[in-house]
Design a protein around this nucleic acid. Structure first.
Lengths: 151, 151
DNA sequence: CAATAAACGCGAATTATTTGCAATAATATC
DNA sequence: GATATTATTGCAAATAATTCGCGTTTATTG
């Protein structure tokens, strides 16, 4: 994935239309370095797209797997480009300041075949922790007593 | 974890109070077989707790790690008991019918030490796929299944 | 038993996300 | 190219889902 991917083709290939709006959306996502919210994306588009339209587009694109919806437990969704524009990866998010870092997928190749499922199409996986800055700042807030178990 | 855990002690141990409300909440969660929404939980509590109170409790408990917030990409959070009441695990969710199955954590023991982070405290990880029933039914109408619907 | 702060209920407020609908424009077809 | 078809869009209004303010109750601590 050297230069900018051919978004127009990418859009059309999954049954959509290469409208100026969606092209700008793709380019805006392409420039992001971490998953962004719909609101932030709209801002970075200079308000070029209506928020409703944006949600509809992101929804459709996520459905097609071109865009990936990420949950950082902030109460709202974040989005980023997925394959084929960006290689599969996951995230490590700082619960202190929100910094996000990409991490490689450390999953074992295959999940054991389970009884009730026939296919596994996707997975979400985010790590949470403290970046060095926040870690140094110490535990401002209480909590986390059962850390030892399991994690 | 044989019988019912000592929820009162569990609550107190992480700085909370063993109020009848929170005890009922814990017991209700304990009976669930899959992560539930706040609304569903309230219903299963017979409305014993106000929804705002419920959210505040779940929030506090999640902060303490006693409860785990799970995201199935349905646009709202689901909750379940975490350690020490329940062993660490993840989920496999059917994007067709919403069926949920527990899966063991297949992560490698440790994430490689990264440059900008000092600690990793938690991780979220859900698989998405089709249960056998939905897989057999085939791609009815490729479309979003969960939007606006009940859960 | 009094003091203290956590937990609660209630209603109102926010925020995120969705929908209905009419207008517009990208593609496929002719 | 002209045209039909249908995805996409904007806008305004509607839904959720979740949070907040605040006065009251009540579980702990001592």
């Amino acid at each position: 994935m050297v230069g900018t991917p051919d978004f127009a083709q990418m859009l059309r290939r999954c049954g959509g239309r290469a409208t100026p709006g969606r092209l700008r959306l793709m380019r805006a996502l392409w420039k992001e370095t971490a998953p962004v919210t719909a609101a932030r994306l709209q801002k970075s588009l200079g308000g070029a797209l209506n928020l409703a339209t944006l949600y509809r587009a992101l929804d459709a694109l996520a459905e097609d797997g071109v865009v990936r919806r990420v949950d950082f437990r902030h109460g709202h969704a974040h989005y980023e480009l997925a394959a084929p524009a960006r290689a599969h990866h996951h995230h490590l998010a700082c619960t202190g300041c929100g910094a996000v870092e990409d991490v490689a997928c450390t999953l074992r190749p295959r999940l054991k075949r389970t009884s009730a499922f026939s296919t596994i199409t996707d997975h979400a996986m985010e790590y949470f922790g403290l970046c060095k800055a926040c870690g140094a700042r110490g535990p401002e807030r209480g909590g986390r007593i059962w850390t030892g178990a399991g994690e």
